[in-house]
Design a protein around this nucleic acid. Structure first.
Length: 491
RNA sequence: CGGGAGGUAGUUCAGCCCGGUAGAAUACCUGGUUUGGGACCAGGGGGUCGCAGGUUCGAAUCCUGUCCUCCCGACCA
């Protein structure tokens, strides 16, 4: 037992850290708050990115790239926006280093001070809208549907691998439209894209909703979100899509001529998901033996381990396996044959379980005689012996089954952790003892929301879309309320 | 940013209180035996003790500063 994972119920935070580190997803770095994404973790991100990119393009978007640096003055053009981000910005003040005249190594050259400081982008609305001003003149230039894949920096006080790092990778879509209706439709469309991606590809069930004013993006009219539930009962915002109204158009003076040749401000949206999704993926599915990857985005879907006595037998096994590998690859399955001799089968089993590879196939001497293979699935930790005949297509079906099973398990857990509360004592008790989402009435004020956060650490995660209207009384103040909202403690 | 813990071999850690040749396990290399759930024997290589100062004849150990990480809190589009 070289590297045991801390059990979930002993120390959830440590369990999470162990999975990320020992599963080979990421490492800490020498830079405060910044992590190294390791090849296995990056392969996972690439799979997620490629699928999302396809979905963006299928909905008419194109990719572009805007600068990492933003002039300080840009950030302050939109009042709410700067208010929201000012506290966590990295600032570039100089552009040159020099040898310390006192012999103390290398220092910042005081003569190389920038006229205007540059902000390392915490998000790109300002630089993009400053650019869109030049790109948009007529309604014929609209809609403008652009996405960028980039890194951003937010100087967080307390960081956690993937969940909250000072620098992270993400995509940010920024679109411009002629009408509010069209921009709102875009906002909702991208929310649907995110929800579909989370559920169908990551096997993570999400609730679509709209944020309250308190939780809204700085500079947005409305923030839509998908909220997922982790195994410790805390919620995770997995993606956001913002209707920005004309706020940025006004701040950056982006107008277009409509068909009647009148100048109007354009309507905007922005939407993003980040490497934080990986943290959510880990916490939604994994167990005490390690990661569990949903097949559709798993870096490796199938690993094959030979069990042999002597070179001769290994050769015989390899012959059969290489045929199987070829078949699986033909079916588009990501497969690895691990015939290395530096670890015994049991060690390999544990290792690939830690990394969450969905399916493991073991083939040994008995299998050679019987023309069989032992097939183990990571999600349920069950094993079965299957015939080598037709094995590749059976594996393909099994991968689909695992994908569906992972989603269903997560959904069953999530659904059983949405609890209604109508009395304050119940509300507190559910949050403290059971966790998860609590569906309760709220009087609609930010003050009440703050008070509830103060008392319980829970925030309103969202007002679900298509929410059932139901008269009731606020869980805290007893004032009248027209609908329930979802509360939870959150990451 | 406040409170607590930590940084010594690739990894997990002992050594520090009470200064005196830097250790264990595991991993790695070589050879052999092994291989159906984290193998065994023999031999071998590997560490500026986070970094920078200071005290001292002598510092992993004592002092000061600093960087990084973890946990709790505050903060968190």
């Amino acid at each position: 037992m070289a590297s045991a994972i801390t059990p979930r119920d002993k120390d959830y935070s440590q369990w999470y850290n162990d999975l990320v580190l020992k599963g080979g997803l990421a490492d800490y770095s020498a830079v405060r708050g910044c992590m190294v994404i390791k090849p296995y973790g990056f392969a996972l991100w690439e799979n997620m990115r490629d699928q999302l990119d396809k979905m963006f393009k299928d909905t008419g978007h194109v990719n572009a790239y805007f600068p990492l640096f933003i002039p300080k003055s840009f950030l302050s053009r939109e009042a709410a926006h700067v208010e929201g981000f000012a506290k966590e910005c990295a600032v570039v003040t100089h552009y040159r280093l020099m040898n310390d005249p006192n012999g103390g190594g290398i220092v910042v050259d005081p003569d190389a001070k920038l006229e205007e400081e540059l902000i390392v982008r915490p998000t790109s609305e300002t630089i993009i809208w400053n650019t869109y001003k030049d790109w948009i003149q007529s309604y014929r230039d609209l809609p403008l549907l652009i996405n960028q894949w980039a890194n951003v920096v937010r100087w967080e006080m307390r960081t956690r691998l993937f969940l909250r790092t000072a620098e992270f990778l993400w995509q940010e879509g920024h679109t411009a439209h002629a009408t509010a209706e069209e921009a709102i439709a875009e906002t909702k469309q991208m929310l649907d894209v995110y929800a579909q991606f989370a559920e169908e590809w990551m096997a993570v069930p999400v609730i679509k909703g709209v944020k309250t004013a308190n939780e809204r993006f700085a500079g947005a009219e409305d923030t839509y979100c998908i909220e997922a539930l982790m195994q410790d009962g805390k919620a995770l915002q997995a993606g956001t899509s913002h209707f920005l109204g004309q706020n940025f158009a006004k701040a950056f003076d982006v107008k277009f001529s409509n068909k009647e040749n009148q100048l109007e401000y354009v309507w905007a949206t922005s939407w993003g998901v980040s490497t934080r999704l990986i943290g959510g993926l880990v916490m939604a599915h994994s167990d005490d033996d390690g990661l569990i990857m949903p097949p559709k985005i798993a870096p490796l879907q199938v690993v094959i381990v030979p069990i042999y006595k002597g070179e001769e037998q290994l050769k015989a096994i390899s012959e059969k396996v290489l045929v199987l590998v070829k078949e699986l690859k033909t079916l588009g399955i990501r497969v690895k044959y691990d015939d290395t001799d530096n670890a015994r089968p049991g060690w390999k089993f544990a290792e690939y379980e830690m990394k969450g590879v969905p399916v493991r196939i073991a083939i040994g001497g008995r299998d050679l005689e019987n023309n069989t293979a032992e097939v183990a699935r990571r999600d349920e930790k069950t094993k079965q012996t299957l015939s080598m005949d037709g094995l590749s297509s059976a594996i393909k079906i099994l991968l689909d089954e695992i994908q569906a099973n992972m989603f269903n398990k997560a959904k069953t857990y999530r659904d059983s952790h949405i609890t209604q509360a109508d009395a304050w004592d119940d509300f507190v008790k559910i949050l403290n003892e059971k966790g998860g989402f609590v569906s309760a009435h709220w009087d609609g004020t930010g003050e009440t929301e703050d008070a509830i956060k103060e008392k319980t650490k829970a925030t309103i995660r969202c007002i679900p879309l298509n929410n059932e209207q139901e008269a009731g009384n606020c869980i805290l103040t007893g004032k009248p309320s027209a609908q329930r909202v979802l509360f939870a403690q959150a990451y």
